[in-house]
Design a protein around this nucleic acid. Structure first.
Ligand SMILES: Nc1ccn([C@H]2C[C@H](O)[C@@H](COP(=O)(O)OP(=O)(O)OP(=O)(O)O)O2)c(=O)n1
Ligand SMILES: [Mg+2]
Ligand SMILES: [Mg+2]
Length: 348
DNA sequence: GCGGATCAC
DNA sequence: TATGGTGATCCGC
C-alpha cells in the first residue's frame, strides 16, 4: 500500500481505494484489480481530482512530519509523561463487565435482491448501475468487484478475470438501481427484531447495529456463542417472510462480533463474514494481543487519509504501535485526537 | 451557521 | 460513455 516508496506515481496513490481488505475478497488478485482500475480511470477528470486531493494531504503530512522531527528530547519526555498518565488511568478504568454484539448484514442490498429473485444467488451481480455500484454479492467479489466501484470497471473485471486466478469469464449483472426506500424498509424491520435482544440497540448505518446483550445473557443464562447463534438464526428466519415474493429459498444472513466494547465488537463482526461470528474474550491480555498487530485501517474512524498520516508521519500501521509512539503523537496532535488514538491502542 | 474535509454505509 | 446518495462529525471561520 504505497509503502514501497514509489510515491508520486498515480497508480500507487489510487490503488488502495479498491484493494484494501474487505470481507469475501481474501483471494482476489489485488495487483490485477489495481492495474485494471488504474487503466480504466487514469484519463478521467475524476481521477485527476483524486490525485490533487492526495497531493494536498501529502503536503499536510510533510509539514506535520517536519514538526515532529523538530521536537526536542525534553519536549518528547514531557509529552511521554502526560501520555503515560492518561494511558495508566484509562487502563485502570477498563470495563470488561459488559458484552456487546455488533450485527452486520451480509452483502445487504444484494441479499435483498436474492430474496426476491433466488436465481441470482449463484451468479455475480452488483446493485446499482454502470456508473456506480452500491454493493456486490460474494460471487462478484471473487472478481474484485465491490461497493463504490464504477459498474463499467466491475463489468470489465468479470469479463476478463485475472489469468492468475481460476475464475471463468462472466457477465456481471446489474440489479436494483435506486431502491433505497425498499432497502430502508427492510432495515427497519431487522432493527425491530434486534430490539428483542436489547431494547436500547444503537443503529449504525443501514445494515448494522450495536447490542448490549449483558442483561439478555444473564436473563436467559446464555453464553456469548449461544447469543450470537440465536441472533443469527432469528434474523435469518424472520427475514424469509419480509418480502412476499415467490417462496425465497433462504432469509438474509448476518455476521456478529462479540466483545467487551462496541469498537472491538465492530471489528470482530468482519472476521467471520459472511454468515459467521467471532468472539473476543473479555480479558485484558486477549484484547491487548488482539489489537497489537491489528491494522489501524480496521478501526472505525480511521479512513484513507488518517491511515496515510499515521504511516507517513509516525510510521504506525498497527494499533499496538500507537502506544509505542505515544510521545511523538501526544506532542504533535490535538488532545482529543491523541487521547482517542491511545484508546484505540489500548483496545478501549 | 456554513464550507470543506473526513469518515461511514 | 460512464465515479452516487445519504448522513454524521469536526474544525476553522
Ligand atoms: N459505499 C457504500 C457502501 C455500502 N453501501 C450500502 C450497500 C450495502 O449493501 C450496505 C451495507 O454496507 P456494508 O459496508 O455493510 O456492506 P455489505 O453489507 O454490502 O457487505 P458486507 O457483507 O461486507 O457487510 O450499504 C453503499 O450504498 N455505498
Ligand atoms: Mg453489511
Ligand atoms: Mg455495514
Amino acid at each position: 500500500d504505497g509503502k514501497d516508496g514509489v510515491q508520486g506515481h498515480g497508480k500507487c496513490d489510487y490503488e488502495t481505494v479498491f484493494t484494501n481488505a474487505k470481507a469475501g475478497m481474501d483471494n482476489v488478485d489485488k495487483d490485477y484489480v489495481r492495474d485494471m482500475v488504474y487503466e480504466m480511470s487514469k484519463n478521467s477528470k475524476f481521477f485527476v481530482n483524486e490525485q490533487q486531493k492526495n497531493q494536498q494531504s501529502d503536503e499536510r503530512n510533510k509539514r506535520l512530519k517536519a514538526r515532529v522531527e523538530a521536537l526536542t528530547q525534553a519536549e518528547l519526555n514531557s509529552a511521554c509523561q502526560i501520555a503515560d498518565r492518561f494511558i495508566d488511568s484509562e487502563d485502570d478504568g477498563r470495563d470488561l463487565s459488559r458484552t456487546f454484539v455488533h450485527v452486520d448484514m451480509d452483502a445487504f442490498f444484494a441479499g435483498i435482491e436474492i430474496l426476491k429473485n433466488p436465481d441470482l444467488a449463484n451468479v455475480p451481480f452488483g446493485t446499482g448501475s454502470l456508473a456506480m455500484l452500491s454493493t456486490a454479492n460474494y460471487e462478484a467479489r471473487k472478481y474484485g468487484v465491490r461497493s463504490a466501484m464504477p459498474g463499467f470497471i466491475a463489468k470489465e473485471l468479470c469479463r476478463k478475470p485475472s489469468p492468475r486466478s481460476n475464475l471463468k469469464p462472466a457477465e456481471l449483472l446489474f440489479v436494483g438501481n435506486y431502491r433505497h426506500g425498499e432497502y430502508s424498509h427492510v432495515s427497519k424491520q431487522i432493527m425491530k427484531v434486534l430490539e428483542g435482544f436489547d431494547p436500547h440497540i444503537k443503529r449504525a448505518g443501514i445494515d448494522e447495529a450495536y447490542l448490549d446483550v449483558t442483561d439478555y445473557m444473564k436473563k436467559h443464562d446464555m453464553t456469548p456463542t449461544q447469543v450470537a447463534d440465536k441472533i443469527r438464526s432469528t434474523v435469518e428466519n424472520t427475514t424469509v417472510t419480509f418480502l412476499q415474493h415467490p417462496t425465497p429459498a433462504a432469509g438474509l444472513t448476518c455476521s456478529c462480533g462479540v466483545a467487551p466494547n462496541r469498537r472491538l465488537a465492530k471489528i470482530c463482526s468482519d472476521i467471520r463474514k459472511p454468515n459467521g461470528h467471532y468472539i473476543l474474550p473479555p480479558s485484558r491480555d486477549a484484547i491487548l494481543h488482539f489489537v497489537s498487530t491489528l491494522p489501524i485501517r480496521k478501526v472505525n474512524g480511521i479512513g484513507r487519509v488518517s491511515e496515510r498520516m499515521l504511516q507517513h508521519v509516525y510510521g504506525v500501521t498497527q494499533c499496538g504501535q500507537l502506544l509505542e509512539h505515544r510521545a511523538a503523537i501526544c506532542a504533535s496532535l490535538r488532545p482529543l485526537t491523541w487521547k482517542w488514538l491511545m484508546g484505540v491502542g489500548l483496545g478501549l
